[in-house]
């Protein structure tokens, strides 16, 4: 038997993932599962509505909305890059742009719904399309709204100087949520507007 050293080996450098990031990743995971069920319901009921209006007659691809929401992912990334550099001013403008793009998306969705309800007579209790469409798109819009609230809060804090460069990690974690909302939109767009 070899003689063993009496002291245990010192542990190597000890680094662990940040809990904020892991927490946000978990939140995104669980939210994805939530959306997956609504998406499954929508896919399952495609073409099964018993009465009009039917999807191919009333739904139009929301091109502008999609462009706005997806480009907001770019602006938020640029904003964070600016904050890392310490350019708080640039950050604020880009962050504001993100919020405005998100806001455009919400307004666009509102206009779309207005048309669907008053022009096409499609509400949540009209038929299966109304049921799955409004709940899926509605939950996505609710997530956009929640995201916008948090983004606005962040902007307020930064402008007031309560938060800044030192909080870049936290703000970065928040941006994950926004990217997630965007990613979900790609899926929602595909199942709701493309597969009709």
């Amino acid at each position: 038997m070899t003689t063993a050293s009496a002291t245990p080996p010192a542990p190597a450098e000890w680094t662990l993932p940040s809990r904020g990031r892991v927490g946000m990743a978990c939140l995104i995971l669980t939210e994805s599962a939530f959306f997956a069920i609504f998406i499954a319901a929508h896919l399952f009921y495609i073409g099964k509505s018993l009465n009009p209006p039917y999807a191919r007659d009333v739904l139009e691809l929301p091109v502008l909305n999609t462009i706005c929401l997806l480009s907001s992912s770019i602006t938020i990334t640029l904003a964070l890059r600016a904050l890392r550099r310490g350019a708080v001013g640039t950050f604020s403008w880009l962050w504001l742009a993100t919020i405005l793009l998100g806001l455009e998306f919400l307004i666009g969705t509102g206009l779309e719904w207005y048309g669907l309800i008053y022009r096409d007579g499609l509400t949540i209790d009209t038929n299966l399309l109304g049921t799955t469409f409004y709940s899926l798109v509605g939950f996505h819009a609710a997530h956009v709204t929640l995201g916008l609230l948090m983004l606005s809060g962040t902007l307020l804090f930064v402008v007031l100087g309560w938060a800044g460069e030192r909080d870049v990690e936290r703000i970065d974690v928040l941006s994950w949520y926004w990217h997630f909302v965007d990613a979900i939109w790609v899926v929602v767009l595909t199942v709701v507007y493309v597969i009709v």
């Binding site: 009921y45 509505s49 949540i124 209790d125 409004y134 709940s135």
Partner: peptide, 18 residues
């Protein structure tokens, strides 16, 4: 809940639901 409060048709077999 939507079915019960908003008259949606997720599980409403009368409206073609499953």
């Amino acid at each position: 809940l939507f079915d019960r409060f908003l008259d949606s048709h997720f599980f409403d077999t009368q409206a073609g639901g499953s």
